[in-house]
Amino acid sequence: MADRIAFELVSPDRLLMSADVEAVMVPGGEGDFTVMPGHMPVISTVRPAVVDVYETWGAAPTTRIFVRGGFVDVTAERVTLLAEHATNLAEVDRADLAQQVRDAAEDITLAKTDLERANAQQVHDSLNELLSAVE
């Protein structure tokens, strides 16, 4: 077990993943970092980007999950990522996502207040990040 680390990804509506893996690439608030067994303890914010999960380090990631905000708690034995929103890239319908991006752009133009506009812009930006990750 010393060559594996426990990884859990939790979103508000469900446990998205729980597995013992060799490494996890985390999009931290201050930059990407790779967590492997024995990593020093750290707590970090998570920026909107893709989390790459490696069953075998050095091979292609076995799972790619887009997260939109949250934080990660790392110990030598465990990585727990609590995401505001998480989407497994393998489950994304590209056409539906492209429509969501168009709808979000329309929401920006229809916003009546600065707060509504800022919230719509944040959703639009996150959806564009996800669309870029899928391509």
Rank of each mutant, 00 (worst) to 15 (best):
residue 62 T to L: 00
residue 118 A to P: 04
residue 34 T to W: 03
residue 95 A to F: 13
residue 28 G to N: 02
residue 19 A to I: 01
residue 38 G to N: 09
residue 72 V to A: 13
residue 5 I to P: 02
residue 52 D to G: 04
residue 1 M to W: 06
residue 49 A to V: 01
residue 51 V to W: 00
residue 38 G to P: 11
residue 102 R to L: 13
residue 128 N to V: 15
residue 50 V to L: 00
residue 116 E to F: 00
residue 34 T to K: 08
residue 102 R to C: 01
residue 132 S to F: 03
residue 21 V to T: 03
residue 78 R to H: 15
residue 57 W to K: 02
residue 113 T to F: 07
residue 36 M to Y: 03
residue 133 A to I: 02
residue 106 E to V: 00
residue 113 T to K: 11
residue 45 T to F: 15
residue 94 R to D: 12
residue 115 L to V: 14
residue 67 V to I: 11
residue 59 A to C: 08
residue 29 G to E: 10
residue 29 G to L: 08
residue 93 D to M: 09
residue 66 F to D: 03
residue 101 V to Y: 05
residue 124 H to T: 05
residue 135 E to S: 15
residue 116 E to A: 14
residue 20 D to F: 01
residue 57 W to E: 02
residue 44 S to I: 02
residue 68 R to L: 01
residue 130 L to I: 09
residue 112 K to Y: 03
residue 4 R to S: 07
residue 130 L to N: 10
residue 47 R to M: 13
residue 16 L to D: 11
residue 13 D to Y: 11
residue 31 G to K: 11
residue 43 I to T: 14
residue 17 M to I: 01
residue 35 V to C: 05
residue 2 A to Y: 02
residue 77 E to M: 11
residue 33 F to W: 07
residue 2 A to M: 10
residue 82 L to A: 12
residue 78 R to N: 03
residue 16 L to H: 04
residue 4 R to A: 06
residue 112 K to G: 12
residue 123 V to Y: 01
residue 24 V to W: 03
residue 101 V to G: 08
residue 91 E to T: 12
residue 126 S to G: 15
residue 72 V to H: 01
residue 23 A to G: 07
residue 118 A to Q: 11
residue 30 E to W: 02
residue 70 G to V: 12
residue 2 A to L: 12
residue 98 A to D: 15
residue 20 D to V: 00
residue 134 V to P: 05
residue 133 A to D: 01
residue 51 V to C: 02
residue 21 V to H: 04
residue 75 T to N: 13
residue 85 H to L: 15
residue 93 D to W: 09
residue 60 A to V: 06
residue 13 D to K: 14
residue 81 L to H: 03
residue 106 E to T: 11
residue 81 L to C: 07
residue 33 F to P: 10
residue 22 E to D: 08
residue 119 N to I: 10
residue 32 D to W: 08
residue 86 A to W: 04
residue 48 P to V: 10
residue 64 R to I: 00
residue 22 E to W: 01
